[in-house]
Amino acid sequence: MIEAIFMITAIVCLISALLTVTAHNAVHALLYLVTMMIAIALIFFLFGSPFAAALQIIVYAGAVMVLFVFVTMMLHQGEKSNLDEKALFSLKNAKGPLLLATILIAELLMISVQPLEMNSSLVPLSAISNEAEQDSAQRDNTSQPNSVKSLAIQLYGPYRLLVIIAAMLLLSALIAAIHIARKTPKHVDVDLSPEETQLANKQQKANS
């Protein structure tokens, strides 16, 4: 039963990925991407790591994708940009990348098939609880694997350095984003239409 659900979500995931890549309209692409992320969140859930699934939906699909939507909203010129998009991308002139991507998939699959003949399978959360007890002994008293509690203990135990680095990373990205996106006077104002920008420039030249 879980196998079937996994198969469906996998197919959904693949289709939506393909659609995002080949969509002409930016907003459609975004939406397809969101559906893919939710499908992946579902797969995480199937793996038995609810925390990862939740994070995926909240942070990834929720925050990052929303950021994308905002930016597309700012830059999207409506119909004009859709037309541009058709000029910029068409399947028939994307032959090269298509070929490359297929070769890559073929190679990766060949790699993945060889070492994994011993068809080990992923067992959902409930079935594996018994083996976990033996190896959990060496680790400090994590009650059972994949639970948020054990994750948190580990996170702030051996991996506390990782957390600090992640925090630093986020902070620097924050500062960088603010600095780069700052509107300096000589830049044209992105939300003004082209006519208004000439007007603004003339005024600036007048008073400088």
Partner: peptide, 20 residues
């Protein structure tokens, strides 16, 4: 149970689509 192979296939194909 979910076959590891399938998961790998899925992620590799996602990766390839991304590259495309």
């Amino acid at each position: 149970m979910i076959e590891t192979l399938w998961v790998i296939i899925l992620s590799f194909s996602l990766f390839a689509i991304g590259i495309f």
